[in-house]
Write a protein that binds this DNA or RNA. Structure first.
Lengths: 204, 204
DNA sequence: TGTACATCAGTGAACGCGCGTTCACTGATGTAC
DNA sequence: TGTACATCAGTGAACGCGCGTTCACTGATGTAC
């Protein structure tokens, strides 16, 4: 495993430096600020040098999006899993929103166009435990197992997961676009909306 | 009122033709397909001619967004107001989603960046009866008046409205971005999610 | 260990493109007398 | 109604810019003997 040549190690390090620079440009100046020239400048390279590491700008953006999805999942995984099932679900929902609020441009890039939305699966929603949707699903599963949520005909685990995802995604998206400059403090409204969602899951 | 000169009438007609062309370019080729050149081409003008009618490309995009918000509201206003209060709310929620699915690029443009999101108010959510949010609010108000929904401390009309908006917006947005190429038929899931939302409003 | 050669990483300049906008202009439309 | 002038709508060409990408190159790194 340690048989990497110095050249390979250097290659990996430089590649990572490029991605780090791309990340910070997106965070500082937004997706529009990211060009092969600004990126090369940031690491004191010539633009052409980047093509030693990536085939195109698109490839770099795809990696930035993937990294975003990993970080989003990390936010959600930070939530104490020892909490009660409802508090846990509540917490991961808020984590999704918090990621968006703290990384608005990155979040927008991740979900701004069809091809960029890394999670897009073949014929089902992405269920793996390392994607935000998978984590959401797991949180709901815990609530079902604990008897906190009612399963109904036509409204099982995946329907609940979809409903939860759309809810938190809508909050995240609106607060980052339409409501970005609205001075309202919407945290309380987010909490209430999540509580209403869980009330629906509990209602008889 | 009819005292417009022929020149004025012509001006208004041309201005409208420019906006119509902009609309159809966005619908056909997406927001990226819209440039002053493609737009001028579409109506057999020189690019410079457009500046007789609009000060900048930004101004044109702003108008396209406004028109989008009007059309979105129109979708929602089409819902039979004679329906029961829950069916009515359900219907306008689905209308919001249907607008997005039928006009994905226009919808994305309307909500793709902070400044474009026409509805952004000064210090409150837009409540007028001609905005999508206002119509949603009105639908919920009907449910409250009819006694179908429970008002709770901290979860009154505007919290319910915000929760409803984020839910339908999340569905619309995800289906137009991350899930655009997913072959799943999500209509049933949308319905169930809306029903769950209303169950939350009804739960004791 | 030293030398000859092959591979590689990074450079600098350029290509070709499409963009928003400006500007001097012209022919047509409208106005005043 | 006819003529002289002013206003206006639209043109064609150009400005200056930033973009993604390519290419011939060079100096450095690694390999083979």
């Amino acid at each position: 495993m340690k048989k990497q040549s110095p050249r390979t190690r250097r290659h990996i390090r430089t590649r990572q430096a490029i991605l780090d620079a791309a990340l910070s440009i997106v965070h500082e100046d937004g997706p529009d600020g990211l060009s092969m020239r600004t990126l090369a400048d940031r690491i004191d390279y010539s633009p052409a040098g980047l093509y030693e590491y990536f085939g195109s700008k698109e490839e770099i953006i795809a990696e930035v999006c993937d990294e975003g999805h990993r970080r989003l999942a990390a936010y959600m995984l930070e939530v104490e899993s020892s909490l009660s099932s409802t508090d846990y679900l509540y917490g991961i929902g808020l984590a999704y929103i918090r990621f968006a609020l703290e990384n608005p441009d990155h979040f927008l890039l991740m979900f701004s166009s069809p091809q960029m939305a890394g999670d897009a699966p073949e014929d089902a929603l992405p269920q793996d435990s390392e994607s935000s949707y998978g984590i959401l699903l797991h949180g709901i599963e815990r609530g079902i197992d604990a008897g906190a949520f009612h399963v109904r005909p036509g409204f099982g685990l995946s329907e609940m997961g979809y409903a939860a995802w759309t809810l938190v995604h809508g909050m995240a998206m609106l607060r980052v676009t339409a409501l970005r400059d609205v001075p309202l403090d919407l945290d309380a409204a987010d909490h209430q909306a999540l509580l209403n969602f869980m009330r629906g899951l509990q209602a008889a």
